[in-house]
């Protein structure tokens, strides 16, 4: 349901204490790549102390480390009341199964799909009950593939489509990889491409990327209007199959309309209940 996921480093007070004003739907506190090996304890204690004291009003995940020896210490520092789940790097079936044995019950997992191998496991991963979303990590993937990314997205088209296919087949959210530079035009191209392919949301590595992502991944005014008309007609007729403006409407379209309207309401984009 979220539109934007923003990574913030777990060891920078200035960013932690402003996480709730960056307008991201989900904050991912990074304890993995953004934190040097010798500073993991600093980041864990800083993030934990902040969340317990200030309880920011935003959905929070923590990107834990991939190695069990590190993520066990990570898990010990996650304040469960304030964190919805973990983002798990370099996901594959075996590592996720191992993580699930020690993961506290209240936490769900967003699986970072960022190795070539993961794409052969992706169906199993998507099917796992506690996986809430599949998240494409294109930087790591491209370096393993020897591929070069550009705003056209050609290099990662297959990865994106495969991930979306698996996520949608199991009713999970598909979250797109961040765009790594701060050029707004490149981000616009990259994000529009992701949105058109079917991603539900996109991640950001800088707060200034968030407004554009939110705008792009929000339902548009026309879409909201159409969804309202479909739902109104459905409720009036009481059937799952009818024609509207000469086009056939059936169950998947009706379901999509409900989902879109829920997202619009959640982000304050629903201009009221009028249907004309």
């Amino acid at each position: 349901m979220a539109r934007s996921y923003l990574f913030i480093p777990g060891n920078v007070p200035r960013m932690l204490q402003n996480m709730d004003v960056y307008e991201a739907d989900v904050i991912i506190i990074d304890w993995e790549d953004a934190i040097a090996p010798g500073e993991k304890d600093e980041a864990r204690i800083l993030s934990e102390t902040f969340l317990k004291k200030h309880a920011p009003d935003v959905e929070i995940y923590i990107r834990i480390n991939a190695e069990p020896s590190l993520y066990e210490a990570d898990l010990a520092h996650i304040p469960l009341n304030h964190v919805k789940g973990v983002v798990y790097p370099k996901s594959d079936t075996a590592s996720l199964s191992k993580l699930l044995k020690v993961l506290p019950d209240s936490l769900d997992i967003i699986a970072l799909i960022e190795t070539p191998g993961a794409f052969f496991d992706i169906k199993t991963i998507a099917a796992m009950e506690r996986i809430s979303a599949l998240f494409l990590g294109a930087e790591d993937l491209c370096s393993e593939l020897g591929a070069t990314r550009d705003p056209s997205g050609d290099a990662i088209l297959f990865a994106r489509s495969t991930l979306i296919m698996a996520a949608k087949a199991y009713g999970k959210d598909a979250v797109d990889t961040p765009w790594a530079d701060l050029d707004a035009n490149n981000l616009q191209k990259d994000a529009a491409r992701a949105k058109n392919l079917g991603f539900d949301a996109k991640s950001a590595i800088h707060p200034n990327q968030v407004p554009l992502i939110n705008r792009l991944f929000s339902p548009g005014a026309e879409q909201i209007k159409d969804a309202k008309r479909i739902i109104a007609m459905h409720e009036r007729k009481g059937t799952m199959r009818f024609s509207l403006d000469g086009k056939m409407v059936d169950k998947p379209i009706i379901q999509r309309a409900y989902k879109l309207l829920e997202k619009a309401r959640r982000y304050g984009l629903d201009g009221g209940d009028s249907v004309d």
């Binding site: 007070p13 204490q17 304890d41 600093e42 204690i45 800083l46 102390t49």
Partner: peptide, 17 residues
């Protein structure tokens, strides 16, 4: 200009280390 949580966290980490 650190807030309380940050001062407390830094000190706690230092003591643990």
């Amino acid at each position: 200009g650190a807030l309380d949580y940050a001062i407390k966290a830094r000190l706690t980490t230092a003591i643990k280390r």
